[in-house]
Amino acid sequence: MIEVTELTKYYGARRALDRCSFRIGQGEIVGLVGKNGAGKTTILKILSGQLLPTEGQAMIDGQSVEDNSIAARAKIGYLPEIPPLYGEMTVSNYLRFACRLRGVPSEQTENRVIKAVYYTGLKEVATQRLGTLAKGYQQRVGIAQAIIHSPPVVLLDEPMASLDPIQIVQIRDLILSLKNQHTVLFSSHILSEVTQICERVILLDEGTIKAQGREDEIRSELLHRRRLSLLIRGTSDRLKEVLAPLGNIEMVIEPFDGRKGSELISASITTEQDIREQVGRMCVEGGLGLLELREERHGLEHLMLQLLEGGGSEPS
């Protein structure tokens, strides 16, 4: 339903997204999680047709958001971080307008408005002006306008930001009720918030997708991964040869400081076991100058912990 391929976005010289790819199937609820500035809003803005990607492609139900923007927009419902509400309109008039704007025939409009009002619990404020509503109700109206035309895809940008705990529970239940009828992609900077709703999580950090999958999968993968950092005097070929007995390991070797012809190389090894002793012994016995060997705590683990604790600070 949503297909994102190698999506890259630059704001001037700043890279906001770097080759992000993911797929979301019909009826799935997926959470985009990341700290402030991770690129969540940029992805949602591209998917909703507000921004063009610098590179890559985004498709909504088979329609390219770049080449067939109008057709792609017809398939989405979008709630931005600040709900787009006309303060002078009443709730039902606003929903009527949003419904017609999305191309729903006039004879179906009333029915859709009644359903959306009922579904989002807005009955008691239906005749009230939007400008006079409390934040929680405004958010509900925002969700109502996003689903009123029954779009296959619903995009929600930080739908629970700045809500009180009771409102969060209400909005969470509302999003959960969208499951199966709509494909939902929503962003948040608090992982626990997302994992209560989503089957799948896409973890973003500084514009790149660091991990995606079920929360428990990501967590166990991250907690079992170790990264060894080496500084060696020798050649990369020799290092590969010396460490060959370790079998199939994930290793990245590059010249130290990025200088070509340097006699120092740095290597980064990702494994699931603690192989520090073995690597140290093999390097020394293999005649390589072992200048440094240390285990780095996985950056993502920090990120996960921060997100779990809600330490992502303000939403992006």
Binding site: Q50, I70, A71, R73, P84, Y86, A98, L101, Q145
Partner: peptide, 11 residues
């Protein structure tokens, strides 16, 4: 007032 997005994301 951040309402332009409603028009920008509608067909």
């Amino acid at each position: 007032t951040h309402t332009l997005v409603l028009l920008q994301t509608a067909p």
